[in-house]
Design a protein around this nucleic acid. Structure first.
Length: 526
RNA sequence: GGCCCCGUGGUGUAACGGUUAGCACGCCAGGUUUUCAACCUGGAAGCGCGGGUUCGACUCCCGCCGGGGCUACCA
């Protein structure tokens, strides 16, 4: 699966937040609920399976990624999405995208759009959805009624204060136990047994036991019938036939509650794999503070989707050998949720940069060019650039740049006058610099105009190299003493592509003019 | 406070009862008679602490310490 280069750097999401169900997206809700499904252009959404018609035996791996749209997609969320995606693709399973938007306050259409955009940009597609959790209200209500009827759940008029008081009386390790209100008032709580443990058989952590008595008879729905997270998740995972729940560690302690809901519903729960959380460089939970933490920020910083996938896959998971550079196909082939490590990892942008550089070098020329283009346009405001020169410039820095964003600063001198960098000038333009530039000018003028080279003026890389390379020895100077003055003269700084390439790219006329300017400035200062 | 998870160099990981504790990023030095980058070579740097079990523990058990999560009529 690949995406045209053009779309890999633009967010052309045609997401709509309109309510009519626009495509054949599988609905898990009633007709009523259909009207509140999040819909998006189906052009990138694969055909949908008819899960309901399948027999149990046919129900292969079904995973889901269920972000809560309370902000941009985080690097940690992206990793969870990737792990789910890899697990699904690994054995031809199905990935469901579910939007946990029951938090009316924080869930916004903008946030949903942003998350979908990020997922699409990362090239992590889903087979079903996006499904709005809010849109499943009727199904939640039905499940709730079932529990009420069976007595597994009950209305309790206790307030938060009442619960607190109850716990103060019964001990801190004792979960609250309420009593049904006679009149049906109060929030709906699930009955939790006093004895025994609820054990989570986790793919990553093994069996984790939680004493039932430490859990409250927790609230699963408000009195108006609106359901709460731990209940909605369990009902949804059950209805959607999810076989493997791969999610963040922060949900481990909530899992027993969901298991209790499954039990009350009489449905076999899925398997769980709780992946460790990602931490920032300071060891704390990853947050916006820690630099480029969201997918969109990473994209804006010039990282490639495939590099990001490779990098985040390795945050907590390894292929078992010493391989570091793994293509997405490798990842799909080798990833298994049970191989994910148990300890939290720290996002290290330095390594991502290195890895991104490796991927940039591997990119086909046209793809690399198109990817760079949008970054350059952002810098230049879309001002037209000489295409031939642009392409040549990009080519000579492909080996050097580590992010798409770093390309422009390196080739900028080809389109603009040298930058003013006093520090670089002082460091280089001294001693033999004037003599060197005089010598260089003469040599460059001597290059015959064969019509070769990027500017068709004889300044081909080889031609430039053949006259400049012997110069240090000829002048009995170090290479740096000879080449740095040229670099500063034509670019203004000490950092640029290779010097022969730079001179060739700039061309005869402009190179000589800049050297001339530098020479006179040098003459003035002495 | 209660319940739970985690602990190999700065970072990500491998080894899982017996290895000189491997690999990658980063860092330092040198090389590539062109800076930066890339590339090559070399280097510094690690099993949180204390008890056990064992002929032998990074690997098993216990305690401690440290980090984290959950503990909402949030998700």
């Amino acid at each position: 699966m690949s995406v045209p280069a053009g779309s890999s750097v633009s967010f052309g999401a045609r997401l709509t937040t309109t309510y009519p169900l626009a495509n054949g997206g599988r609905s898990y809700g009633s007709d009523d609920a259909r009207r509140v499904l999040w819909c998006f252009d189906s052009s990138s959404a694969p055909a949908v399976e008819t899960w309901a018609k399948m027999s149990t035996a046919e129900k292969a791996t079904r995973v889901r990624f269920a972000p809560s749209p309370t902000g941009a997609l985080h690097i940690g969320g992206a990793r969870t999405a990737l792990y789910n995606w890899l697990a699904a693709r690994h054995d031809g399973g199905t990935m469901v995208l579910r939007i946990e938007d029951t938090d009316l306050e924080r869930s916004t259409p903008e946030n949903v759009a942003q998350i979908l955009d990020a997922l699409r940009w990362l090239d992590l597609d889903w087979d079903e959805g996006p499904i709005s959790q809010v849109g499943r209200a009727n199904d939640h209500a039905a499940a709730l009624q079932k529990l009420l009827d069976s007595g597994a759940a009950y209305p309790d008029s206790a307030t938060a204060e009442d619960v607190k008081a109850w716990k103060a009386e019964h001990g801190a390790d004792r979960g609250y136990r309420g009593t049904p209100s006679g009149d049906g008032s109060g929030a709906i709580r699930l009955r939790v047994p006093d004895d025994g443990d609820t054990v989570v058989d986790d793919l990553i952590r093994g069996e984790v036991r939680f004493p039932n008595r430490s859990y409250d008879d927790f609230v699963i729905a408000r009195n108006d019938g609106s359901v709460l997270y731990n209940f909605a998740v369990a009902v949804d995972d059950a209805d959607m036939g999810i076989t493997e729940v791969i999610r963040g560690d922060d949900h481990l302690s909530n899992t027993p509650k969901q298991l209790l809901v499954f039990e009350a519903l009489g449905i076999k729960p899925p398997r769980y794999a709780h992946v460790p959380l990602l931490h920032g460089p300071d060891g704390k939970k990853l947050s916006k503070r820690h630099g480029a933490a969201s997918v969109q920020e990473l994209r804006d910083a010039g990282y490639l989707p495939e590099a990001i996938r490779n990098y985040i896959a390795l945050l907590g998971w390894g292929p078992g050998d010493d391989e570091t550079l793994l293509s997405t196909d490798d990842l799909v082939e080798r990833f298994r949720p049970e191989d994910v490590g148990k300890s939290s990892a720290v996002f290290d942008e330095k390594k991502l940069r290195w890895m991104n550089g490796r991927y940039m070098r591997e990119m086909p020329a046209w793809e690399y060019l198109e990817a760079v283009r949008s970054f350059v346009e952002a810098e230049t405001g879309g001002r037209p650039l000489n295409e031939e020169r642009f392409e040549f410039g990009c080519r000579i820095v492909q080996e050097k740049a580590q992010t798409l964003r770093e390309v422009w600063p390196l080739i900028r001198f080809l389109f603009e006058p040298p930058v003013q960098d006093d520090k670089a000038w002082r460091k280089v333009m001294k001693g033999e610099a004037a003599r060197v530039l005089t010598e260089v000018e003469a040599l460059l003028i001597g290059i015959a105009d064969s019509g070769e080279g990027p500017n068709h003026d004889g300044f081909a890389i080889e031609a430039v190299q053949s006259v400049l390379e012997p110069l240090p020895e000829k002048l009995d100077l170090g290479a740096g003493k000879v080449f740095q003055p040229i670099r500063v003269a034509i670019t203004g700084t000490t950092i640029s592509p290779g010097i022969f390439e730079s001179v060739a790219a700039l061309g005869r006329e402009e190179t000589l003019a800049r050297i001339e300017v530098a020479r006179s400035k040098l003459a003035d200062q002495s």
